[in-house]
Design a protein around this nucleic acid. Structure first.
Lengths: 112, 112
DNA sequence: ATCCTACCCATAGATCGTCTATGGTTTGGA
DNA sequence: TCCAAACCATAGACGATCTATGGGTAGGAT
């Protein structure tokens, strides 16, 4: 029933790239990081996350290596590439442009 | 090629409802209003707009009447219903919650 | 007269991104 | 021995937007 999306569509790639600007991380960790930083408002479902990571890999924006985690498990660590960093900046600019524009529409006062 | 969306997906209904909180308006006028207030950043394609208006009608969030415009043309004027006003507030709250959450992820400083 | 542009409505089909649902493995603690 | 948490991944459904079309009318310009 109460079926609200857990994300704003179109922002997932940006959020993942942003997360990876801090340090390489595996999928599960990326999802956790976004969830925690957003105070549980944003939830990245696994069915959204892994396809997104595949897209980013294909585009060459991240690369992946299997390593061991601190909890002693095998996991794919994703690392941002130079192109990925550029892409993040592009998506961030675009997002801010959009948000600003939406804000102007929402705040629009009654004019004469 | 350079194929960027003209909107943030998921925000169109909110923008339409917001536009109608000011006064009843026809489809063409709604699109123009959003475009102008956003300084041409947001462009509502007709193929997005009219299906959206149908959705809003079906949900009972707007109603429509054929009238003459100031430019002497027949047009369907959409009016916000009480339920539509409530829906706008819901969508606005949700949007602001999301934006705040995304902002926290984006602004996140490197912690120890 | 005729043409052109701005004003208006609407739908079908493609596309894209996210969600639901599913299925699997491994570690470590109860 | 069992279970939860930590991990990966895909298929298919779904929803929203875009592209591409197709129409129609008023009014000014040529």
């Amino acid at each position: 029933m109460t079926n609200k999306p857990e994300l704003l569509p179109g922002t997932l790639d940006m959020l993942i790239l942003k997360t990876l600007t801090r340090a390489p991380l595996h999928g599960y960790g990326i999802a956790l990081s976004i969830k925690r930083l957003s105070d549980d408002v944003l939830t990245v479902e696994e069915g959204s996350l892994y396809p997104a990571l595949q897209r980013l890999l294909l585009q060459g924006w991240v690369k992946a290596d299997w390593k061991m985690t601190e909890t002693n498990r095998r996991a794919r660590f994703y690392t941002l590439t130079a192109a990925g960093r550029r892409q993040f900046n592009i998506e961030l600019s675009r997002f801010e442009l959009m948000i600003g524009a939406i804000g102007r529409v929402l705040r629009d006062a009654q004019e004469a």
